[in-house]
Design a protein around this nucleic acid. Structure first.
Lengths: 157, 157
DNA sequence: AATGAAAATTTAGAACT
DNA sequence: AGTTCTAAATTTTCATT
């Protein structure tokens, strides 16, 4: 198992993280190689976990989920068992697409996708406020998004 | 062009946002249909923009980019031309994977992926602080991530 | 809109350099 | 590690219902 990625590996990763529907043939053409080694390298990158998964990214606005919200949350209690319970309950909410434990002015930073502000208020009332030990909650309502990608910069790898 | 998605469309979207490497045949089997209508529906969902793109999600930690950081940024000037310039410069940094204009205690919320804390400090010194009109900057260093997905909840669509 | 089948293309792997 | 060649599988198109 190669632990280091060579130039060709990073080129393949750069291509696939932009567009995973590319065929091995088209990647091979772009890199001036034949399909077999490209195919083998991709399988290796998948097997070794450099590629986590292939997904379709949906247009959430078109599906009616127009509002992205970030929440900074502080907890009043910090016992380990409570932290774990909090995270597991937060993770169970389909509105929450990200939950990060952070250091700084909050304990947790969440990212949510909801229909609109009204749906966000409904989430707070019916789900969030039911969680015990909840301290300060700060909402950051997204007005517009200039950049939103999953593409990792591979230029320095 | 169908503006509303029926049950089968949402089932296809739910499958593809979990795993876009699924074949039309396997999706057809799961939904009790043949490949042709599944194929046509996927093409329609792509064409109408419900599916934005297909991407490979990489394991950024394995590639050496271990640190996720969020930044809350306040600007000192708010003229339109400056806001646009700020966003375009922020977007040009490969470390920044998300840039949202928000309402709340910050003007912008950024998400970055960097090698480590040292690389983050280097980013602040060599790139961020060069931007004019920069006001308050708050760093939220990710300690651990409980949930991080792009999957949109389609149950209510 | 779906079925079933045919054509075109890609994937996956064997043999070889 | 790469190339070429080939079989299997999948994608894509289309006539039909």
């Amino acid at each position: 198992m190669a632990l280091i990625l060579d130039k060709i590996d990073t080129q393949i990763l750069a291509i696939l993280q932009k567009d995973s529907s590319r065929t091995t043939k088209s990647i091979a053409n772009e890199l001036g190689m034949t399909t077999s080694p490209i195919f083998e390298r991709i399988k290796k990158l998948e097997k070794e976990g450099y590629i986590k998964k292939y997904v379709a990214l949906l247009n959430h606005k078109k599906i009616g989920l127009k509002q992205v919200v970030f929440m900074g949350i502080t907890l009043q209690g910090h016992t380990r068992s409570y932290l774990e319970k909090f995270v597991s309950q937060i993770n169970s909410f389909p509105e929450v697409i990200e939950c990060h434990r952070v250091s700084g002015n909050f304990d947790y930073l969440l990212k949510l996708v909801v229909e609109d502000i009204e749906a966000y208020e409904h989430f707070i009332i019916t789900k969030l406020t039911l969680l015990p030990y909840l301290g300060n909650v700060q909402s950051l309502i997204t007005l517009s998004t200039g950049k939103e990608t999953n593409e990792i910069d591979l230029s320095r790898v």
